[in-house]
């Protein structure tokens, strides 16, 4: 009798905990649903052809679009990625393949430190190192700041994936008499390709959503420009400016900017996956 009661209590407790876990899960994901839902509904309502084909209008005038910010985002983010890729992948390979290299321990610690560093500090440093000496804000400076954000993420992701590649592949390659560099380039990196791409996408998404480091690097520009040595507009920056403004039409466009920014990130990751999957 007593044992039975005890057992029933244990079962109840089990069910109660399941309920609590369920509530926790729902809470954890609730805000995501709300944010994405509002962004989708308000964003779609605000999207039109002008948004992609026209530049922004002066405040208080309705209409216009954010062509200049969309183009700017693609250029600044793409350039940032190009700057970050070689450094990040090289550093990741070093950490995974040369554990005894004297640079390995400090690079690992510093990559983690950089990764945990607030993005705004990276913008601050780029302002001092690039904007001031160049005498102008520029899309390039913004790209460096974003690259700064991507490098440590790519490094650690690459390292993580490379260590998962089976030892046997390395041994087989070396047994064939291939030098170490050839094993890394032709066997290990291709084997880890999918994982590396995932890491790169993650890094790209993190950086593409940042506005803080662009405030004083890429700066913004109401006109379309494709010259990375000129100040450039980006969607996160414009979204921030529009969101805090009092103009209803800018609020509308802020939602659209949010949606397009998110779509660009998703698109870039789909493209990267497709490009690396199809050819090999």
């Amino acid at each position: 009798m007593n044992r039975d009661l005890n057992l029933r209590r244990r079962y109840w407790r089990d069910r109660l905990m399941l309920l609590l876990l369920g509530i926790g899960t729902v809470l954890a994901l609730l805000v995501l649903f709300l944010v994405m839902g509002y962004a989708l509904v308000n964003g779609v309502a605000a999207l039109n052809w002008d948004f992609f084909t026209k530049d922004m209008k002066p405040p208080g005038e309705t209409g216009g679009g954010l062509r200049q910010a969309i183009v700017g985002t693609i250029i600044v983010d793409g350039l940032g990625l190009l700057l970050a890729l070689p450094i990040g992948i090289a550093a990741g390979s070093l950490l995974a393949e040369y554990p005894d290299h004297p640079l390995t321990p400090p690079i690992r610690t510093l990559a983690d430190t950089l990764n945990g560093m607030p993005a705004i500090l990276k913008g601050l440093v780029v302002f001092v190192l690039i904007v001031k000496p160049m005498g102008t804000f520029s899309g390039f400076a913004g790209a460096v700041a974003l690259g700064f954000i991507m490098v440590p993420i790519i490094t650690r992701a690459t390292e993580g994936v490379l260590t998962l590649v089976p030892k046997e592949i390395r041994e087989a390659g070396l047994a064939l008499g291939l030098p170490r560099w050839r094993v890394i380039l032709s066997l290990i990196l291709p084997a880890a390709r999918a994982g590396i791409v995932t890491g790169v996408i993650l890094a790209f998404a993190r950086a593409a959503g940042e506005a803080a480091p662009l405030l004083f690097t890429s700066f913004g520009n109401p006109f379309l420009t494709t010259d990375p040595l000129k100040p450039m507009d980006t969607l996160p920056l414009r979204l921030f400016q529009f969101a805090i403004s009092p103009y209803a039409d800018w609020h509308r466009q802020a939602w659209a900017a949010g949606l397009v920014l998110f779509a660009l990130i998703v698109l870039a990751s789909a493209l990267a996956r497709w490009a690396t999957r199809r050819r090999l």
Partner: peptide, 9 residues
């Protein structure tokens, strides 16, 4: 330092 796949990317 760039793998073939990433070169393509």
């Amino acid at each position: 330092p760039v793998s073939l796949g990433l070169m393509r990317l």
